[in-house]
């Protein structure tokens, strides 16, 4: 069983913590040793949030470092750019094509960089740009965008679909299970049909 390091980057409030819980739970079911790390506190007030999920035979450090992430899952474009150097050169980068302005941009002190997605794509050949927000909106609840992302990522892990369903059922609130399963399926399908 080879080790997989997954790093999740997003903006406080986008549901990255739940994402890492679903990932971790699915990985346990698949028989992996799992360690996860997250930082609470200041990060939650709309700041940038990162969490790490590491799977393998035996995981030591819970932390993922620069050049170590096999999969970098980004919920927002600027955060993708900020943490791009955590992805291995041959790692997979999945970016939700959404823009959320940080305060320095909102108040006009700094500019939101142009063409983030093409900049990222020109430096790594495994970049996937998806519009998970739109998919979630079509499902009727933008909050499930995180599980759309999970669905897309699931394809690259080799963990069986059934285990992901179980993980979702155990992690999300009961009344949101159905919509989250749909969100997962949509994300998974996007990964199957993805063309650059």
């Amino acid at each position: 069983m080879s080790n997989i390091s997954i790093m999740i980057a997003g903006v406080g409030g986008q549901g990255t913590l739940l994402t890492s819980r679903v990932l971790g739970t699915a990985a346990i079911k698949a028989g992996y040793d799992v360690k996860m790390s997250e930082v609470h506190g200041m990060a939650q007030r709309g700041g940038s949030v990162i969490t790490y999920v590491k799977l393998g035979d035996k995981v030591d450090s819970p932390v993922i470092e620069k050049g170590e992430a096999d999969i970098l899952l980004c919920f927002e474009k600027l955060e993708a750019l900020r943490y791009i150097d955590y992805a291995r050169k041959d790692g997979i980068i999945i970016v939700n094509d959404q823009r959320i302005d940080p305060m320095p941009v909102i108040i006009g002190k700094q500019n939101y960089p142009d063409d983030i997605t093409s900049k990222i794509s020109s430096n790594n050949s495994n970049v996937y740009i998806i519009d998970a927000l739109e998919v979630a909106a079509n499902l009727g609840n933008i909050r499930v965008l995180n599980i759309v992302m999970v669905g897309f990522l699931a394809k690259s892990t080799g963990i069986k679909k059934e285990l992901w369903y179980e993980a979702i059922r155990e992690t999300v609130k009961e009344k949101f299970i159905d919509i989250n399963i749909k969100a997962f399926d949509e994300g998974y399908r996007m990964a199957e049909n993805y063309s650059r």
Partner: peptide, 20 residues
């Protein structure tokens, strides 16, 4: 030194926490 890194030269604006 780790050199298996994807990197992009770019000035990335910070995202400090804010009052909600």
């Amino acid at each position: 030194k780790e050199d298996n890194i994807t990197s992009v030269e770019e000035n990335v604006p910070g995202r400090p926490p804010v009052l909600c």
